[in-house]
Design a protein around this nucleic acid. Structure first.
Lengths: 196, 196, 196, 196
DNA sequence: TATGAATGAGTGTTCATTCAT
DNA sequence: AATGAATGAACACTCATTCAT
């Protein structure tokens, strides 16, 4: 299995670094190879083409990302707690890897439709986690029963994504994890005064 | 003023069409020139470079977009009503111009960091509109007083943006305007049962 | 019509020179452009791709080559005289353009199957000229009536081609035109002292 | 002697197959190694480089080819009979090995000048066989005494080569051996109804 | 002997921009 | 103002060959 060989991870980590530092469009394969300490040709022993590096990068990193979120949310009891843990873990993980944050929030969005479609399919499991929490919340009687699941999912993901993107564009000058409670509160209770 | 000459708008409209139909990466300057019915070189009498076409496109179209939202929201009394009108008008306008929806939600995101920064500055007035509504809501006592304005703005914009993007990616097969009330409700009251 | 613009011929002539001097595999597009005195990109205003330069080169040069042979053979009366004129003109023309001789006899044969197929179709009119002369000779009663036309054509073309190729590979150190009569004699009368 | 080890022949036979099936330009060393059932590196224990495989292939196969022709022609008495046997044996052998026919007539011609020069030197003994038959024919009084040996050799080889190449390009859809007599007749007696 | 992972040189083509007319 | 022919920089990918095991 190529994915377990050291050079596979070496190249992916180099790609994250190179893209974060140089931007998507200045990240030539040769630059990634150099940073990874391998020859250009070696890249093609582990990846089908340049796009495959990027898809694999996203799969690898988001796989771990989502797995961690699954674990953490499962350690909580109620949907509300799970949702808070999801927000926290989402922010924590991207906080912990600034390069990755830049790559996922800014650089990888510059990719073409085809690549973006693949990236979206990697995100599917994450959306499933959100869906499950919503369902749980409804069953528990915590959340309103007549919620449009798709819209809710879009609100949650859109809010988190926009929040992280803004933080990255502000060059990560504040602590985003500190905002988890407030974001969670906005999602659960909205803007209105009457909620508590 | 170049912006008022007919060819200026002609080129911008051609750009929207070409990008919507061919995608960002297949939208060469020559293709835009052809669609606009001018020579390649003529483009450069009206725009500094290719990026300038895209920025101008966004300014022109978003300028109208935001102006319309300002007008519509101002015709409402309370912050809650204004917010609903904002969501509705946001959805209506993109619903009314499918090409523009594709360009703003999908294609222009493939641009590089530099261009995206400029695009963001065009969005600034929109964010100000949102901010004003929030402030109003707080003053009216409708919204919670201790809201983090930036986070709220990100929740609102992120939710709308994600909702529209999903609609575009689903090839606009459903009526997004129908969802305005539900989205508004989610923003104002959140997921929780206890809100009304 | 691009074929009549000066740069079209300029590029083709440069290609003949570059290929003759550097060999097929060392004839990069950039080298041809440089020799032609144009930018690399200009090549692609006149030719679809590299292969198209080579096919066009062959069409252009062989078109003239074959036309000349048609003219010259038509100025003769009998099939035998026509055949002699054909051999002479074939040798004369390649003698007169050493670069072209190298390109057609050696370098262009290194091309892939696809290109060679196209090259063969350019040669078709030449084979038709040969066929016509054979038919004429048979009708005149000069040539044997039961000849297998295809085989005869292959003998004639194969003999001329092999003769020229050998001359080119011997670096054109002797006068091939001097051999026209002898080659013609071999084709018409064969090896035998006296046939009956 | 490496040439007698089993892997040597194994690799050459693999090369013939791979080239016949995939074409010259798609016949990578790794593909030949795989077909031969050895590792890529093993190739280089038996051959200096890729070109050496091809030269060796030609030497090996043409060696047998020519040897067979020498034997067969020697079993005949007169130069004319020998020539007929040469034509027949030439056709028969390539008829019997379609892969080899494709490789020698089409694929190996795509090689560069350097390789083609080496290939030509492998053909030298064959040309000598032809020369000997011509000399014999002249001595016997069967062939004209003032023949230009080189031209005759080129006529004979050019005719055979062109005939076989056409047959291969027509995908070997007819029986080329059937044409040996006619080809022989053309070589010996030419086109003319009656020479004197 | 044999392996096969690793190497790295080499090139056709696109397209934003310019500038002589 | 308008044209459009000409420019030339930039880059992913292949594959013959090597060499540590």
């Amino acid at each position: 299995m190529k994915k377990n060989k050291p050079k596979y991870k070496q190249i992916i980590d180099a790609a994250v670094e190179v893209i974060a530092e140089n931007g998507y469009h200045s990240s030539q394969v040769s630059k990634i190879a150099k940073k990874a300490g391998v020859a250009d040709g070696t890249i093609y022993l582990y990846f089908k083409n340049k796009e495959d590096i990027l898809v694999s990068l996203f799969q690898e990193k988001m796989g771990q990302f989502i797995e961690k979120i699954e674990q953490e949310t499962n350690s909580r009891q109620t949907a509300e707690e799970k949702l808070l843990k999801l927000v926290e873990t989402h922010f924590e993980q991207l906080s912990a890897d600034h390069h990755l944050a830049i790559v996922t929030q800014l650089e990888l969005r510059q990719s073409n439709k085809d690549l973006r479609q693949k990236i979206n399919s990697v995100l599917k499991p994450y959306l499933n986690v959100i869906d499950a929490i919503i369902s749980e919340g409804v069953e528990e009687g915590l959340f309103r029963p007549n919620l449009d699941r798709r819209l809710v999912r879009q609100m949650i993901f859109g809010t988190l994504d926009e929040t992280v993107t803004n933080w990255v564009m502000k060059e990560q000058r504040y602590n985003i994890v500190d905002q988890a409670h407030e974001v969670h509160s906005l999602i659960v209770h909205g803007l209105a005064r009457s909620s508590q």
